Simulated assay, not measured.
Amino acid sequence: MTALASPPRRKVAIAGVALADCGRVDDRTPYALHAQAARRAVADSGLDRTVIDGFASAGLGTLAPVDVAEYLGLRPRWVDSTAVGGATWEVMAAHAADAIAAGHANAVLLVYGSTARADVKARRRTANLSFGSRGPLQYEVPYGHTLIAKYAMAARRHMHQYGTTLEQLAAVAVQARAHAAANPDAMFRDPITVDDVLDGPLIADPFTKLHCCIRSDGGCAVLLVAEEYLPDAAKAPVWILGTGEYVSHTAMSQWDDFTVSPAAVSGRLAFERAGLAPAEMDIAEIYDAFTYMTLVTLEDLGFCAKGEGGAFVEKGRIGPGGELPVNTDGGGLSACHPGMRGLFLLVEAVRQLRNEAGSHQWLRPDGTAPRLAVASATGGWFCSSATVVLGRD
């Protein structure tokens, strides 16, 4: 029997990105933020909304993403509602890129919206982050392990094992704020110092308030399309060059090493599939719910050796004008964090690659926009990770 030849895989690019209203949003529902971001991303692409035949969202609705798609007036033939925490959106981008490449969809819209800050303010939800007491978590809940405590415990282990200091962790927050200072969309823009971080109220040892992400409202959207749609697009494409995903644990007792995040696997896979090395990246957009996340993810992506993250983030290396600008919009520590920030990483990376970031645009030494970027997100308490390598060429 003669084997049938596989159809050629199509190249996939991001054609449209957009933010919904972010920061303090008291007059919109999460559904409205989804719709606002979706409309803006489609308009940014210059394509007609009728090309969209794939849809992905998570965390909202009775039948996510079915009722969100209905709210947006979409009837997709390909859907994804993966939910692995903050890494959800990079996982979805990887799945969407594979589906488009294989011909199962032509244009996939990824959308997120949340009023996490407004909901707590209005007492529509609590700020409790214990995540329940069923399943594997039931064995840790009696000890008071909130999400913040889990990250704090991992940070303490890195400090013990490698000599990482509180000042080095604080430097991550200081440099994130320096990026945010140039971004008019960032929620907090006033400069901070290492002493400001160290002297703040203690949240979970060793984290003070400024070691932790802000709580905001907001939304965003990303439109991925097959290469044949690009001649009709309004903007130059940003190509999906490589992706990787990996899950690690739920119970902290099942995590082999608190100093190694699942980005060690997702990053390696993404760079291998892109045929590129970390040293070739111009910028990095990294999920930063806490300062330790940035530090350990930089290690695990290969930007420095294990245990050297503390030294790597010192002396402005990841800030504006640094050797490797990280979270150029200000990140979850200063710009916005509505609950699951992974999709914002892709939006910011695309804007930087397009030279559309305005007052917080980073330029290469030759005065040109970055050509390569990596977006790497973490979910849960280092439970999941997904990494996407993006490029203009």
Rank of each mutant, 00 (worst) to 15 (best):
P338L: 06
S6C: 14
H34N: 01
T259K: 04
A15H: 08
C383W: 06
D217Q: 14
E308S: 14
E348F: 03
T291N: 04
P184S: 00
M252G: 04
M1N: 07
V172G: 00
E167R: 09
V326W: 12
F271D: 00
R215C: 10
L346Y: 01
R39Q: 15
P231I: 13
F344V: 07
R157A: 08
D119Y: 08
A96N: 06
V108Y: 04
A289S: 13
R157N: 05
T368H: 05
G59Y: 11
G330P: 10
G16I: 03
T164P: 09
E285S: 05
L298G: 03
G321K: 05
L166F: 01
P320N: 13
R268M: 13
G86Q: 13
T250G: 07
F271G: 01
F290M: 06
K209S: 11
L298D: 04
L60T: 11
L301Q: 01
R124C: 13
C383F: 11
A99V: 03
P320D: 07
A105R: 08
E323S: 08
I283W: 04
I52Q: 10
S130R: 05
R125E: 03
A101T: 04
E323M: 09
C383G: 08
A107M: 08
L4E: 06
G332N: 12
V265M: 11
S114A: 15
A3H: 13
L129P: 02
V350T: 11
A277F: 12
C304A: 06
L47G: 00
A87M: 11
S384G: 02
L298R: 06
T259A: 06
V42S: 02
H160W: 14
A274C: 15
A171V: 08
L363R: 10
G307V: 07
T193K: 15
H145C: 12
H104T: 00
H104C: 02
H360L: 09
G61K: 04
G310Y: 04
H360I: 11
C220N: 05
A83E: 15
D48I: 10
L60M: 10
R351A: 13
T291I: 05
K209Y: 10
